[in-house]
Nucleic acid binder design. Structure first.
Length: 226
DNA sequence: TGCCAGGCCCTCTTTAGGGCCTT
């Protein structure tokens, strides 16, 4: 897979539209099937942390008060991410905070997102459920730290992404797995996934190119959807 | 003090409702 970044936020709640703010972020850069760089920081957005969140994450008001300002952390992580496409577990959540926090520092978030949870629902429907912790245990992936902390969750989501990539390559004999392909898979209706992926694989035998970009303008079932 | 969301998916659906998943 080309370079992608897996991110994970810890926050004061569920909705940036209702005043919730990020308290911690981690970003893990994957390149050529390996984790090659990481960024992690608590951040101080000036919000009190609900007791429930402290119980869930272990992140306290004192920890956040001692952390760098959210504006500084978001600027640093935006530089770290650059133009790389992003992946997160339940990406609709992280995407809202990513966009909200970057807008606060006048940065323009433009990355495409893919979601490891939606991918796992498609590719591992037999898993007991599709919570990150359950999938880590199900796939026997390394537990890299405390759940509900950004660094550990981002690392485990990265390992899950690599596991899903390998699953795709072995099961469907794909020559390459790209971020656009992952985004396409999570949008494909469950009943059509097997057929569509096998058609995609046969159309890309021996190819090392990305989904939806067959040579010579050739289109396939994954191509040119926006 | 307690509450607040949103996108996706499945089905007993599609003119809807409820569960999952994230903090």
């Amino acid at each position: 897979m080309e370079s992608v970044v897996v991110i994970d936020f810890e926050t004061t709640g569920l909705s940036p539209d209702h005043g919730d703010r990020a308290t911690e972020i981690a970003a893990v850069l994957i390149r050529d099937g390996q984790i090659v760089a990481q960024y992690q920081s608590l951040m101080n957005a000036g919000r009190r942390i609900p007791a429930f969140i402290t119980q869930l994450t272990g992140i306290t008001d004192a920890m956040v008060r001692a952390a760098p300002p959210a504006s500084q952390v978001m600027a640093e992580v935006a530089d770290f991410v650059g133009d790389h496409p992003l992946i997160a577990h339940n990406a609709s959540f992280d995407r809202r905070f990513w966009e909200a926090e970057l807008r606060r520092i006048d940065r323009c978030p433009a990355q495409p997102f893919a979601c490891s949870m939606l991918l796992a629902r498609r590719l591992l429907p037999e898993a007991p459920n599709h919570k990150l912790g359950t999938l880590v245990e199900y796939a026997r992936l390394p537990v890299t730290g405390r759940y509900h902390r950004a660094q550990a969750d981002a690392e485990m989501a990265a390992h899950l992404t690599l596991y899903l990539e390998q699953h795709l390559i072995e099961r469907f004999r794909l020559a390459a797995v790209t971020h656009p392909l992952l985004a396409e898979i999570q949008r494909t209706p469950k009943g059509r996934l097997e057929t569509s992926l096998r058609r995609y694989a046969s159309g890309h035998a021996g190819s090392a190119t990305a989904a939806g970009h067959g040579r010579g303008g050739r289109k396939n079932s994954w191509s040119e959807r926006s």
